[in-house]
């Protein structure tokens, strides 16, 4: 199985605070990878580093087999166009309506005219689970969960190859969160997306992820199938997966053995 993202020896620091040190991470083509870790362990910073918003002090990041940091600007923009990113706080453009937010990449990158882009944007907005009238609203008028959905619709606008999600289900109602999980799984299977997802949501981890990467002690402690990770010998990981919430989520998914379905991969490029 090929690695679509390879992070090697990355070091990130802000002033004197070292967030990552010698961090390695592989993401395989077509998988759904969950990144977990305590608050402030640098999950968002890792995501920003991979998508090129944050230049690491050392180390390399390669995506689609190309070293992002060394790439000329134009080439790099072409690679970044194949990313869809859902930021932790949504980061919708506040002076555009939701529909315009989603239509913007369609017009700018896919070269559609405004009418086609509007129709496709409406479809993405509906796919993300927003009501039809949400398209005309401005981000300031949305609820927290609606912002997440609108941001997902924008991230999906160009049907990207890699979807980066930063806590996508935080702030969604449980029914909405389950629908969200199902949507991600459907899209992954049908489009062969690779999903890099930062999440605290144990249900999401148990239902749709193929592998889990645990961020602790400034690096990726373990990056494996869920059953392997859950049995990993580490204080924090044990608390995480075998605490009351972890047990409940595991039982909800498969009462017998607590390990979800085997990873399957949609195959197309």
């Amino acid at each position: 199985m090929t690695n679509i993202i390879e992070v090697r020896g990355v070091r990130n620091q802000f002033g004197r605070q070292v967030v990552h040190d010698g961090l390695d991470l592989d993401v395989r083509r077509g998988e759904i990878l969950s990144v977990v870790g305590g608050s402030g362990t640098g999950k968002s910073v890792l995501l920003r580093t991979i998508v090129g918003l944050n230049r690491p002090a050392a180390g390399s990041v390669s995506v689609f087999g190309e070293d992002l940091l060394g790439l000329p600007v134009l080439r790099r923009a072409a690679v970044e166009r194949r990313f869809g990113v859902l930021f932790q706080k949504g980061a919708l453009f506040s002076s555009l309506t939701v529909a315009e937010n989603v239509a913007l990449p369609l017009i700018e990158h896919a070269g559609l005219n405004a009418a086609d882009a509007g129709r496709l944007a409406a479809l993405k907005i509906a796919l993300a689970g927003l009501p039809a009238n949400a398209g005309e609203k401005y981000p300031a008028d949305l609820s927290g969960g609606m912002i997440k959905r609108a941001a997902l619709a924008r991230a999906l606008a160009l049907d990207p190859d890699i979807l980066f999600l930063d806590e996508p289900t935080a702030g969604l109602d449980p029914i909405g969160a389950a629908a969200f999980d199902a949507l991600i799984l459907t899209l992954r299977d049908a489009l062969g997306l690779t999903v890099f997802m930062v999440t605290h949501d144990l249900d999401t981890i148990y239902t749709i992820t193929d592998r889990v990467a645990v961020l602790a002690q400034k690096r990726v402690l373990v990056n494996e199938r869920l059953d392997v990770v859950a049995d990993f010998d580490d204080e924090w990981i044990r608390e995480y997966f075998h605490g009351p919430r972890g047990r409940a989520a595991a039982q909800a998914v498969s009462p017998a053995h607590g390990v979800p379905h085997k990873p399957s991969h949609g195959g197309q490029t």
Binding site: A122, L123, I125, A126, L127, A132, E136, T186, D189
Partner: peptide
């Protein structure tokens, strides 16, 4: 194939909601 059917289903399920107001 099933994954393609799932995609069609996902879109068919919401296409009415996506009709322009």
């Amino acid at each position: 194939p099933p994954e393609r059917r799932a995609l069609l289903q996902a879109v068919v399920g919401v296409i009415d909601a996506a009709a322009p107001v």
